[in-house]
Design a binder for these strands. Structure first.
Lengths: 142, 142
DNA sequence: AATTTCTGATACTAATTTAGTATCAGTTAA
DNA sequence: TTAACTGATACTAAATTAGTATCAGAAATT
């Protein structure tokens, strides 16, 4: 059971990398090389991040992308939602056969609780936090 | 982002159904009809549940399957693990580029915490509990 | 003005996973 | 001996995920 797919994975890595370079525009090519993410794939991912306001871009030579917000304001939950949609159960688990009244369905209730929990957790992990953690690890290594 | 796939979904439904019939063997055919689960698919799912000791079977005419344990001792977590494997992150998120020391990797640590949490929650939801919840809902409907 | 370096948009193919089907051998009850 | 079952396993189809390709247009550089 894989929690994060490649898009989310690459997106988070790209966001971390962008967050660590505070100045100027970074080209998709440069990012792709640095993080060894397939170039065209990364382009599409960046475009999606741009559409969703996490990243902004500048066209033309010397252009590129950069974070559109403080790293501390970008939660991993947002990234997951962009590329994988909201966490949800199999739609059929609580169907007719077992539970004719969806609204009152206790089972459904149970799992929505878990979903909410997971979402809250991922909301608290921001790109900024990941960068800090990374720096801490780097520092320890000396 | 789908948490449960069809196999898990069908498996849970089958287990609930079996748990509600306390007596005798139920044929895959009967279960398939009752829960409208594709017969051959259900057969494979049941075989997997049998291999994993959640269900036991009797061959031949008049045979079928039944729970091998108390419903209260079968956790949804087990079922998920059988059909979808342990919850895990994308393997690549914490690779070389970002974190050369997997063992000490703080990021990894973060998400393993969430995984553990989810697992604990799913461990507490047993087939027995689901059956009780279902009965409560049925009773309310009058 | 022409060229190069970049993004925007979007269509496409390939690989993998998930869902579902089919078949045959063997077991048990009637 | 036949019908109703499971055991094992190979197969196909559909959907999703991963990755590629292409063309148009924008800005910096020459």
């Amino acid at each position: 059971m894989k929690v994060l797919n490649k898009e989310t994975d690459y997106a988070v890595r790209a966001l971390i990398s962008l967050g660590m370079k505070s100045d100027g525009w970074v080209s998709a090519k440069a990012l792709s090389d640095e993080q060894t993410i397939p170039y065209q794939f990364l382009r599409r991912i960046l475009q999606e991040l741009i559409r969703n306001g996490l990243v902004e871009s500048k066209e033309g030579a010397g252009g590129g992308v950069r974070l559109a917000k403080e790293p501390g304001l970008i939660a991993v939950a947002e990234v997951i939602e962009i590329f994988q949609g909201k966490v949800q159960l199999s739609e059929c688990m609580f169907r007719k056969q077992l539970c004719s009244n969806r609204a009152n369905c206790v089972l459904r209730h149970e799992i929505m609780r878990i979903e909410k929990m997971v979402n809250q957790e991922f909301s608290q992990i921001t790109i900024g936090k990941l960068i800090d953690d990374l720096k801490a690890v780097e520092a320890m290594k000396g």
